[in-house]
């Protein structure tokens, strides 16, 4: 209102610059209210986004069992490489014993296909050797091997754990 020209009563007194600056820097009531309102709105908005995100994030469940039986030892011949469709798993058996590794490409999850040199991925061209080691990108990790054990006459696999890529004779109940 009096911006620009001094108030008649103030003319005589020299302005207290420091005090004026201090007063100016204090938030006015309106400023405070609108700022608080803004913060509250932002908080509500963030909360709503959080609630929505949590709403869309499924809570547990839905996953396939990590420990599954894959057959009896007789299902797999010595020297054979078998692909189990449902588990997307290669099961090898040699003189040393059994071993199992995933057929899901470690790049983006396509199923790798068998070739003469090992495995190749039909989606982005990664190559793996016969033991699942990366030969060429874009995959950077080897196909993961999973532990096997024998229980109730069945071979079980734990898809949630990873082991070194070797075949070994199975022992009853180990790792169960």
């Amino acid at each position: 209102m009096f911006k620009g020209q001094p108030h008649p009563l103030e003319v005589a007194r020299p302005p207290d610059k420091a005090l004026e600056a201090q007063i100016a820097s204090l938030p006015s009531r309106r400023d405070f209210l609108s700022r608080a309102g803004g913060v509250a709105l932002a908080a509500i908005g963030l909360g709503a986004v959080g609630v929505a995100a949590r709403f869309f994030l499924p809570s547990g469940g839905g996953g396939a069992a990590a420990q599954v039986p894959i057959g009896v030892p007789g299902d797999f011949k010595v020297g054979s490489l078998n692909w189990l469709r449902e588990q997307e798993l290669f099961v090898v058996r040699d003189e040393q014993g059994f071993g199992a590794f995933s057929s899901r490409c470690t790049h983006l999850g396509c199923t790798v296909k068998r070739t003469a040199e090992g495995f190749s991925c039909p989606c982005h061209g990664a190559r793996f050797d016969p033991k699942g080691g990366v030969v060429r990108g874009p995959a950077r990790r080897n196909l993961p091997w999973h532990p096997l054990w024998l229980a109730d006459g069945m071979i079980w696999v734990d898809l949630s754990r990873e082991v070194a890529p070797i075949t070994a004779l199975l022992t009853k109940g180990a790792g169960a």
Binding site: E86, K113, P122, C123
Partner: peptide, 8 residues
């Protein structure tokens, strides 16, 4: 569900 076409 287990095997993509080649190529996909």
């Amino acid at each position: 569900f287990h095997s993509p076409s080649n190529p996909e």
